[in-house]
Design a protein around this nucleic acid. Structure first.
Lengths: 333, 333
DNA sequence: TTGTACGCGTTATCAT
DNA sequence: ATGATAACGCGTACAA
């Protein structure tokens, strides 16, 4: 592999000049620049990223911690981050945190040890205190899907409360008054916010909420199924069920079929996230959209601006959900 | 950040010794080693990965090119790769190739410029010749989901031909003799292999295949829908349809419902990949399993063994598909 | 505008 | 077993 020395020799200039034309730093005459570029061409010279990092103290890499690689959710987020970074010649190093405190901390340590210039974190299990402490460290980061008042300027979050509102109103507007709710794990912030928004919307509409129609799931399909079976077992009356994500809504579909219910006539369902597979379900699932791809892009842009001093305007910290209507909501019989 | 100099000073030993302790290379007395470790602890010393890379000419990073980040397929693959690499303190740099020749080449260039120690490539659009040429270059790589005779020892592939066989037999065994096939793009190797296996199985079973019952889709849902509508429009007789992936099978479900068909009584369907959402469909989709997660792990293990000299046995180059039976196949009426 | 010289924090090759 | 020292390839003040 050719080095910058060979290039400078061939071009008949000093290596400082070569460095300048490569990085566009400092003034270089067009003539010299041309010679240098020619030399780079003929030698097929590629700068050593290691040497560059050592000298500049930057790696051009951004560590990204997601909960999981699979599933429709994080893929969209990673995709948004990667394309945005790559356009600026940076790259992402992705690691999984598995929604587990130990594992998330290990992941963060791993990425810091990789000497990433910055991190983008989608963490659920570590505490606010831990993150506030982390923010005092050397590696800057951005949080996605999380809001911590003390770190507001590095948070990219969804208005989950509003999302809960929308789920409730999707049902209220169709005339439902007995609406069950299958929540995510209540130790997660987003789960609590969605539920809060949901209850709040009912309250404002003067529709009482029966706590017996609340089931705490785990965001996986089977817990959605269990939730519906549970309501039925307890002989609850309800004509609609809102789910805190689409997987659980799919579980509700399954349980409904087991019970011989026809969707959406016998039961209206609304999901959350508007995952890619919402449209694979039958009837196609109405769902509150979570623009995670755009949020991933925004997180990358925030890093690009804060760390790499890219000229980026239009930074936005909070995103709004939106109801995507399909065929899973009918009027109550 | 503490450097190795400070550690050596505090421990009262030379640089070389510290380096030896860290990397476990060369003999070091237990006593010295202890002193060094203590110094590392108190200084909270972390080796600089850049300096390490520069001196050792390794980055401990593996570039991974996938077609897309989203969707159920690549997530499982990336997940397998990441966990396997991280266990050995290596990391993946992921990039997307979008199944497009230019874009795939750019992605490969990008990863090489990142000075990855090796690459894991899931490429569809670049030619065999290009890859053979690439193999003569400096950066070693492994191919996933592709078999090139000249590069057999760096290929991890699925027996797609056998998969096609299985899809055909799922139908034949249920008694179907008029079986349509919705293929992926025929410029892709896996599409061709699956189709070939499918036709071959029919032939062996002495069931003639009507070319009018072949439709070339693009692996996306809508093309599956188009395929089925196309067969019907042409007044073809068939009782079953095999799809080259699950997305297109989902499209077939949609078209079937539009046509008022009841699944699986009026039409049996089999998919390919056994994506996570195969079970979200109703009726749950029978599908030929593609163990992409395990294949990703295997690709990582191959890199670990070949490049990083890890002691790994049980390398396997070809994986076998497997029919996962659910509820989408019935006997013909 | 261009060149010189030093520093970045390791690994690895010699000696000792 | 341990230490001294030369690479590794580039960025960047500082000079010229």
């Amino acid at each position: 592999m050719a080095t910058i020395y060979e290039v400078s020799a061939l071009a008949g200039v000093s290596l400082a000049t070569v460095s300048r034309v490569i990085n566009g730093s400092g003034r270089v005459s067009e003539k010299t620049s041309k010679k240098v570029r020619a030399a780079i061409q003929t030698l097929d010279y590629r700068p050593s990223s290691a040497a560059k990092s050592l000298a500049s103290n930057r790696t051009d890499s951004v560590g990204v911690l997601v909960s999981e690689f699979h599933g429709p959710f994080y893929g969209a987020m990673m995709s948004g981050i990667e394309s945005e970074l790559r356009a600026k010649s940076k790259h992402g190093i992705f690691a999984a945190g598995h929604s587990d405190e130990i594992s998330e901390k290990e992941g963060i340590e791993f990425l810091i040890d990789r000497s990433c210039d910055a991190l983008i974190l989608h963490v659920e299990a570590v505490s606010d205190a831990y993150l506030i402490e982390l923010s005092k460290g050397k590696t800057p980061f951005v949080l996605i899907n999380r809001f911590i008042p003390e770190l507001a300027d590095i948070c990219i979050s969804l208005n989950n409360d509003l999302g809960g509102h929308m789920a409730a109103h999707a049902m209220l507007d169709a005339g439902h008054t007995h609406i069950a709710y299958i929540s995510g794990p209540l130790w997660k912030n987003d789960s609590r916010d969605r539920l809060h928004g949901f209850k709040n919307a009912l309250e404002k509409a003067l529709v009482p909420f029966d706590e017996g129609l609340l089931f705490e799931g785990d965001y996986h399909e089977e817990s959605g199924r269990q939730g519906l079976l549970n309501f039925v077992k307890n002989k609850k009356k309800f004509t609609a069920v809102a789910c805190a994500n689409d997987e659980m809504a799919s579980g509700v579909y399954k349980a409904a079929r087991e019970l011989g219910l026809t969707l959406p006539e016998d039961l209206s369902v609304v999901g959350f996230d508007h995952s890619i597979f919402a449209s694979y379900l039958y009837p196609q699932l109405s769902s509150v959209n979570y623009p995670i791809g755009r949020m991933g892009k925004m997180a990358a842009r925030l890093v690009l601006r804060n760390i790499y001093k890219a000229l980026i305007k239009d930074i936005k910290h909070e995103f709004e959900p939106e109801l995507i209507s399909h065929d899973s909501i009918a009027q109550p019989k």
